[in-house]
Amino acid sequence: MIVVFLGPPGAGKGTQAAYISAKRDIPQLSTGDMLRAAIAAGSDVGRQAKAIIDRGDLVSDEIVAGIVSERIDMSDCESGFLLDGFPRTIEQAHMLDRILAGKGRDISCVLELVVDEGALVDRLNSRISEAKARGDEVRSDDNVETFQKRLGVYQEQTAPLVPFYEAKGVLKKIDGMQPVEAVSADIDRILDEC
């Protein structure tokens, strides 16, 4: 089972991805984690990525795709995996299609958490208030301005993946405004059908 997760920042992808990974016993593959692991392992792609990062530049789509390709060849991905944070653009989606086709594999389904963006700001403000009430430090990126920028990037770059995957017949929409347990139950039902 190969699952791609889509949804704007704050939609609950991280919570649900961890749930799916544990329940379905498939690894959750985050591009950031894969990048750090490839660098630590000293693979060819990891060395290329390290050189780029050391210069202060962003890692190209080709390097990210190479890291994803290396990672999904590992034995723990044989029965499937969940991609969280890749693809982020239509070009990356085409790269993923080529990678999977070269390995004789296909995406099982793409899960989109559909949420009200205004409610996401309310969730963010609640999270900040709760952290402060507990005496916890508020994350530096937990502010409305940063969130709005991240949301704008999502709308511009990643949201076009929704019609892309809809046209392929693999997109499944989930009401992300429900309680966490209800979202998880909907995901389980959809994945059972996939």
Results as ranks from 00 to 15, higher is better:
residue 67 I to W: 09
residue 32 G to V: 13
residue 136 D to P: 07
residue 190 I to Q: 13
residue 50 K to F: 14
residue 124 L to S: 03
residue 169 G to E: 14
residue 13 K to V: 15
residue 138 V to M: 06
residue 21 S to I: 13
residue 174 I to E: 01
residue 139 R to P: 08
residue 73 D to L: 12
residue 170 V to E: 03
residue 116 D to H: 14
residue 98 R to Y: 08
residue 176 G to M: 01
residue 112 E to T: 10
residue 32 G to A: 06
residue 145 E to V: 00
residue 135 G to P: 06
residue 31 T to N: 00
residue 34 M to L: 14
residue 92 Q to N: 11
residue 132 K to F: 04
residue 27 P to N: 15
residue 118 G to Q: 11
residue 101 A to K: 11
residue 191 L to S: 11
residue 127 R to W: 02
residue 159 A to G: 09
residue 48 Q to F: 11
residue 185 A to R: 09
residue 13 K to F: 13
residue 155 Q to W: 07
residue 57 D to A: 07
residue 85 G to W: 02
residue 94 H to R: 15
residue 40 A to D: 01
residue 137 E to N: 11
residue 91 E to R: 15
residue 117 E to D: 04
residue 18 A to G: 15
residue 76 D to I: 04
residue 52 I to Q: 00
residue 111 L to E: 06
residue 30 S to A: 14
residue 159 A to S: 12
residue 41 A to K: 13
residue 10 G to V: 05
residue 149 K to I: 09
residue 19 Y to D: 02
residue 76 D to H: 09
residue 22 A to K: 01
residue 2 I to L: 15
residue 158 T to N: 02
residue 51 A to T: 12
residue 132 K to E: 12
residue 173 K to Y: 12
residue 158 T to Y: 04
residue 11 A to F: 07
residue 112 E to W: 05
residue 89 T to D: 10
residue 144 V to I: 03
residue 19 Y to V: 11
residue 117 E to V: 02
residue 104 G to N: 12
residue 51 A to D: 10
residue 57 D to W: 12
residue 67 I to L: 06
residue 80 G to E: 13
residue 188 D to N: 09
residue 63 I to F: 07
residue 175 D to P: 08
residue 158 T to C: 06
residue 186 D to P: 05
residue 98 R to E: 14
residue 51 A to N: 12
residue 181 E to I: 06
residue 54 D to K: 05
residue 69 S to I: 07
residue 119 A to C: 05
residue 54 D to R: 05
residue 111 L to I: 15
residue 110 V to A: 02
residue 83 L to H: 02
residue 99 I to E: 01
residue 122 D to Y: 03
residue 156 E to P: 04
residue 22 A to W: 02
residue 48 Q to N: 04
residue 178 Q to A: 14
residue 192 D to S: 06
residue 100 L to H: 06
residue 11 A to Y: 05
residue 188 D to P: 04
residue 73 D to P: 03
residue 10 G to R: 04
residue 171 L to C: 09
residue 8 P to F: 12
residue 88 R to G: 04
residue 112 E to V: 01
residue 122 D to S: 09
residue 14 G to M: 14
residue 121 V to E: 11
residue 141 D to A: 03
residue 185 A to T: 14
residue 3 V to K: 06
residue 21 S to E: 15
residue 32 G to K: 10
residue 122 D to I: 08
